[in-house]
Computed example of a mutant assay.
Amino acid sequence: MNATPIKRVALMAALGMALAGPTACGGDDATKQTTEAAARRADPATDKLAQVQARGTLVGYHEADYPPQSMDVKGEVRAADTKCAETQLTANQVTGFDSETTKLVAEGLGVEACFATPTWTEVTSGNWGDRWDIAYGSGSINADRMQRLYMTQPYYAVPNYYFVAVDSPARHAADLDGKRIGACASCSHEMYLNGELQIPGIDIEVNVDDPKLVTFETERPGLKATAKGKIDAFLAAEPVGRARIREGVALRRLPEVAFTYYPSGFVDKSSGLDSKAFVAKVNEIVRRAQADATLERLSRNFFGRDYIAAAVKYDIDAIDQDVE
Rank of each mutant, 00 (worst) to 15 (best):
S275F: 02
E238G: 14
P239Y: 10
R242F: 13
E247R: 02
K224E: 15
A225P: 08
A293R: 13
Y262R: 12
A237H: 02
E205G: 12
F303M: 08
S275R: 11
R246A: 15
V214S: 05
E219T: 06
E190V: 10
T215V: 11
R244Q: 15
K212E: 14
Q290K: 07
S271Y: 10
A237R: 00
A277H: 06
G229N: 07
N283S: 02
R288I: 11
G272N: 11
G304C: 00
R246Q: 12
Y307C: 04
Y262F: 11
A293N: 13
S271Q: 06
R253M: 15
G304A: 11
I202M: 07
E196M: 13
P211W: 08
K269S: 08
Y192D: 03
Y307T: 07
E205N: 13
R220K: 09
L193G: 11
D268M: 07
S299R: 05
V257Q: 06
Y262K: 09
D306K: 01
V282D: 02
I202P: 01
E219V: 14
A277S: 14
I245M: 15
N207G: 04
T260L: 12
E190M: 15
I202F: 07
P263T: 00
I285E: 00
A250V: 10
V267D: 13
D306F: 00
I231D: 15
F216G: 12
I202T: 06
K269Y: 15
Q290W: 01
L298I: 02
T226H: 13
E284I: 00
G195Y: 08
L197H: 01
E256F: 13
S299N: 11
G229Y: 08
